[in-house]
Design a protein around this nucleic acid. Structure first.
Length: 825
DNA sequence: GTAGGGTTAG
């Protein structure tokens, strides 16, 4: 069991000095004469009496016989027990005594293991000792140290060491090529690969090709990848790893054809499941979904056993295809193959169920999982946040924090999205605090989500603050800010931000354009809308369906229904949103008959009407006073299309009922509907009460509104006007006094008209315009004309729940406003 | 004794 000291040891014996304790060691190591009583098979560690006894026995230094074999075993025991530091110290001691490095062939693995501790200070210390003892003359030791520096993330140290190496072999080069790749410096990796060949005349072996291929994949550098491919073929390298590496490289570079070529050319190697997996994943990530499915099915027909990665790839494919049925089958197979405890598979399953709409099963898998990790939590929390369960998302997020004490950027993003959709600012603030603590404050993705959260919570100031504190702004963060302004009724802010963004040389994309268009819609500035339109056309977004849909809506809201219609007609491809937008646009301009015809055409085109379609139809009926059709559509929506009416549709119906004076039914409908009434639907009824003079109901309705929103001044004024109409001056005064007492202030409502590029704004009794005399003359004659035609000029009061309630007083009549007239009853 | 080994989940 124990070797007698060999000749070599005997020769060296004279040089050994054992008087020093080991550097920085907690325990001194002494070399001991051979002692057969020591069991080398015992394990050191807590229950390890042998080490202690060895050390405690205090070997007599003078009698010590150095034995390489003995020391080697001691080192090995230390390594096995994870005492790398002690193992290293024994080794260093041996070097100090002059034992040649070659004697310890397991030193390189020791350095490697030591590097796993990722203590760079200790690694550098050892480096110094190795230099001192000239151990770095051994290329194995040097290469190992090189690898350790890369593993510890110390690229600079590795690079320095590498270039100082007097002799570099292919392992040294390959360590550098893969080190650069793994530290994310893919260019450095390829640069080294090329230097090796060109400047040092070292030909790459298959290891070098594999690492370099990985770098090409990461850089999506097809040209370099092809060069390596050619070299691989010329060199006759032929193995599974290179084949999958090549296929992966072609797929990542988007060259599906060449990936297929490699795959088809390697029939003999196709018995390897990984190669199929790489192909399937490649097809999925390149969007070739049907080819991915075909290949998966083909694979099932072979004798190759799909592994968990195959299942994961297939599940990702089902998620993309929203194919729940196949997803469920894969779930079944996974259980049969006993793969269901694989956390990646469980995560892919969870994601698939959520995305395919089966939230319950998704949650069940998560809850019963025994292998949950952060990614799986992320899958569930993000999906809850995105699929209408923001409260559940935040609950889960909270549980995660309790369990793990931290959150990564994916979880924080999901939590912020949940806060956005709930417009729950206090929770959003908490998460903001948490992410600052987690050091994610300067993450540009999170920054954009924060901007969006604050903007949705109507706190544009905080959104601005976050934006201006971002260390880097990209298009997404600019878009978040611009959209924030647009959502917060600050179209000017949106346009100003757009200009600043452009001055920073950041080009708007389709999302920016959609936000700017919504600002245009709010400003009703048709010229600006046209400007954006032509910009989009020049940028080649002309055929973007999202953009065209925004244009249809914006032109209509700006009053240019003709342009809205033109955009719609010119669309090569239309979706449901396009149809809904044009129906809504035509409807708000009173073109009810066109809307009805178009609705038939929409169905004829194979489009499925949804809730928004019916909002558009009912709104058209409201605007045109088409009560009968309104009821018809409402009934068919519920009975034929099986669409549950939402608040929007109820608001349209209340408006319609209000128009025909059926106030009681309108009131009953509000009380009976399953959704919570908001101020708009009550406002609509209140306006109807005013028109039809139902003072009693008006008071009841007003009560509801005041409870909903005690500080809303518009409705108070509407009610006071109503009292005035019926001569109830005391009541009217009471309300006006209430408004004063509550300190409510009203910003004057204004109207505006765009003439050429100028926008002219008017408020009530406004005489500031230089043509005000002419304007008022025109207004007066128009009013007379309207009366003569048998109409009663009516203040624009309440719209159909689609727009803001317009304050009734302080309205000046522009020509546009004259459209708001009601037919004499 | 040193380098490398492919695909895969939010």
């Amino acid at each position: 069991m124990v070797r007698t000291p060999d000749l070599y040891s005997r020769q060296l014996y004279g040089h050994y000095k054992v008087q020093h304790s080991l550097p920085r060691s907690s325990v001194g190591i002494r070399y001991k004469p051979m002692d057969s009583s020591i069991s080398y098979c015992s394990r050191f560690g807590n229950q390890n009496p042998s080490l202690k006894s060895i050390l405690a026995s205090g070997f007599s230094r003078n009698e010590s016989i150095m034995d390489v074999s003995w020391s080697s075993k001691l080192i090995r025991e230390y390594m096995d027990d994870g005492f790398f530091e002690d193992a290293v110290k024994v080794y260093l001691k041996m070097l100090e005594y002059g034992v040649p490095v070659e004697e310890f062939q397991f030193f390189p693995p020791l350095i490697k293991a030591f590097g796993e501790l990722l203590d760079i200070g200790k690694v550098r210390e050892i480096h110094a000792h190795l230099l001192k003892f000239r151990a770095l003359d051994d290329i194995y030791v040097e290469n190992s140290l090189l690898g350790v520096y890369w593993k510890c993330g110390e690229a600079e140290d590795a690079i320095q060491l590498f270039w100082k190496m007097p002799v570099k072999d292919s392992v040294s080069w390959n360590t550098m090529i893969s080190g650069f790749y793994r530290s994310g410096d893919n260019r450095g990796s390829l640069r080294t690969f090329s230097q090796m060949i060109r400047e040092h005349g070292v030909f790459p072996n298959r290891v070098a090709c594999l690492s370099a291929l990985s770098s090409c994949s990461a850089l999506e550098s097809l040209a370099h990848g092809k060069e390596i491919h050619a070299f691989v073929v010329k060199s006759g390298f032929d193995d599974d790893f290179l084949v999958s590496g090549l296929i992966d490289m072609y797929m990542k570079c988007g060259d599906v054809k060449n990936a297929q070529y490699v795959f088809d050319d390697e029939e003999s190697i196709r018995m390897n499941a990984v190669i199929w997996n790489v192909m399937i994943n490649g097809y999925v990530s390149n969007g070739n979904l049907s080819q991915a499915m075909d290949l998966f099915v083909e694979m099932l027909g072979t004798s190759i056993v799909p592994d968990s990665s195959t299942m994961v790839a297939a599940l990702v494919l089902c998620t993309e295809l929203l194919d729940l049925a196949v997803g469920k089958q894969i779930h079944g197979w996974a259980i049969n193959l006993g793969l269901n405890n694989d956390v990646r598979l469980e995560t892919a399953l969870t994601d698939m169920y959520f995305k395919c709409g089966d939230t319950k099963t998704g949650l069940d898998i998560f809850k019963s999982s025994r292998t949950r990790n952060t990614v799986m939590w992320g899958a569930v929390i993000s999906n809850c946040a995105q699929s209408g369960f923001p409260i559940e998302a935040l609950d889960l997020f909270h549980n995660y924090i309790i369990e793990y004490g931290f959150a990564d950027s994916v979880l924080i993003l999901a939590a912020l999205r949940a806060c956005s959709s709930l417009t729950w600012k206090s929770k959003g603030l908490q998460i903001h605090g948490l992410l600052v603590k987690s050091g994610l404050g300067s993450d540009v993705f999170i920054g954009s989500a924060l901007i969006d959260m604050y903007a949705k919570c109507r706190d544009i100031e905080s959104a601005q603050k976050v934006f201006y504190r971002l260390p880097d702004r990209d298009l997404v963060s600019w878009n978040a800010l611009i959209s924030g302004y647009a959502q917060n009724r600050s179209p000017d802010g949106a346009l100003k931000a757009l200009r600043t963004m452009q001055s920073e040389q950041i080009r708007p994309n389709t999302v920016t354009s959609a936000c700017v268009l919504s600002a245009c819609a709010y400003l009703s500035t048709v010229n600006l809308c046209k400007e954006v339109h032509s910009y989009l056309f020049r940028q080649g977004f002309g055929s973007n369906i999202l953009i065209s849909n925004s244009l249809i809506a914006t032109y209509a809201k700006c009053g240019d229904v003709k342009s809205s219609w033109t955009v719609f007609q010119n669309m090569r491809e239309k979706n449901e949103v396009s149809w809904n937008s044009v129906l809504l646009g035509l409807g708000i301009h009173g073109h009810a008959d066109e809307v009805f015809v178009l609705f038939e055409k929409m169905e004829g085109a194979g489009m499925k009407p949804d809730s928004a379609t019916f909002t558009a139809l009912l709104s058209a009926c409201s605007h045109a006073g088409r009560v009968e059709e309104g009821f018809k559509y409402f009934t068919s929506m519920v009975e034929y299309y099986k669409i549950e009416p939402q608040l929007e549709q109820y608001t349209c119906m209340v408006d319609l009922l209000g128009r025909v004076g059926d106030l009681k039914q309108a009131y009953d409908m509000i009380l009976a509907m399953p959704c919570v009434p908001d101020d708009r639907i009550w406002g609509s009824l209140l306006a109807a009460c005013k028109i039809h003079g139902d003072k009693r109901l008006a008071e009841v309705v007003a009560d509801h509104i005041m409870n909903l929103d005690p500080t809303n001044i518009g409705y108070r004024i509407l009610l006071s006007n109503l009292y005035e109409d019926y001569g109830k001056w005391n009541e009217a005064t009471r309300i006006r006094t209430e408004i004063k007492d509550m300190g409510l202030k009203k910003s004057p409502g204004c109207s505006w008209i765009e003439v050429n590029t100028d926008i002219h704004t008017f408020i009530a009794s406004d005489r500031s315009h230089n043509l005000s005399v002419e304007i008022y003359d025109a207004l007066e004659s128009l009013t007379i004309q309207i009366r003569e035609e048998g109409y009663i000029p009516q203040s624009p009061s309440v719209t159909l729940g689609l727009n803001e309630v317009i304050d009734v007083d302080n309205i000046s009549f522009t020509v546009e406003n004259c459209l708001f007239v009601s037919r004499k009853q």
